[in-house]
Design a protein around this nucleic acid. Sequence first.
DNA 1: TAAAAACCATACAGACCTGTATAGTTCGAA
DNA 2: TTCGAACTATACAGGTCTGTATGGTTTTTA
Lengths: 192, 192
Amino acid sequence: MASPRRDQLVQTALQLFCQHGFHATGIDTILAKAGVAKMTLYNHFASKDELIVAALQLRQKQFFAWLDEENARIGSAADQPEGRLGALFDALKVWLLKAKLNGCIFTNAGAEFGNDDNPINREVKHYKQARIDYIKNVLGELSVNDTDTLAKQICMLLDGAIVAVQAGLEETSFDTAKNAALLLVAQQLASK
Amino acid sequence: MASPRRDQLVQTALQLFCQHGFHATGIDTILAKAGVAKMTLYNHFASKDELIVAALQLRQKQFFAWLDEENARIGSAADQPEGRLGALFDALKVWLLKAKLNGCIFTNAGAEFGNDDNPINREVKHYKQARIDYIKNVLGELSVNDTDTLAKQICMLLDGAIVAVQAGLEETSFDTAKNAALLLVAQQLASK
DNA sequence: TAAAAACCATACAGACCTGTATAGTTCGAA
DNA sequence: TTCGAACTATACAGGTCTGTATGGTTTTTA
């Protein structure tokens, strides 16, 4: 399954899909940039859609690995609930403003591939749910009530901020979202 | 400028773009469904991109006209701030769950057309800003401080909920977003 | 060292895409 | 009734797309 050519393909594909979208990125463009022959691609993947799924899986793996690192780093530096979640938001802002990143690739995939039940959309759903679960876990350590609802609201604020930045509104949207998230957390802590 | 054929084209295009996205919807598909000849299209529009812009403008016009109606209807029924904003959210939920609507077409357009400065993205940005301004105006009547930040946060929650539903998560996401919005408003009112 | 697996380069099939060319048709207004 | 504008129908140019066929080359493995 694993192979240097395959990895090269998936990484290049992910990068190009992020920049230009899925339909707008042709197989030949990916192959040229990756320096891989077309037959090699179709030896590893049955179709372009399979390559897209692999690229989404790679992104998810990268993202949560990065999130674990950041969380560990923050965990030892901030004990206060607000500080911890706030630091996570700050880290996410850096991640999301990374060069040539056009919004959230999972949101973008959902936009491009209709609302039917296909492997790509399943990957999107899986990512969004995993992100909620991750935040829920962080909140759980903070001993807050109704972590499920709160985690969902935080993720909504995050996705909303990404959409706003992608649309060309101010990059301070991330901070605005962060403030809202902290207010919601504070309210939960107060009502406990 | 106005013409029955042109209107038919833009309406049909809007519907198909909503369902299947922009790249995935070909000119011929639109023409067949609209029952219009290809030369008629290129007599009214210089390119497919111009048709896309026209479709986005139509959607924006429809949306704000509908929003005005709902707002007027609500305004006479609910005087309480929470009731009014909550009713708006409930109305938006109905609008957004309308059949065959795959997320927010403006968010989708932003996803499909990179992050360069083109007429399509300008339309997206214009819509997102107009929506913020509208909410800000509603909040203004409620005499709340810092309406700008609050309006942006509410719009983020809305876009986040749309993304969540589009990804296949629960439709109750709208209610979860609504609750968060109401909490944020209540907090503003309390701290005044 | 010999066989097997992975990969490369090129060409191409077949479909679909946007946009144009051309000629005929409907239909309202002067 | 005649002129002109808007529309239709069809064909096609030129490009791009995914995916396949074929045959040669490199690399790994036994």
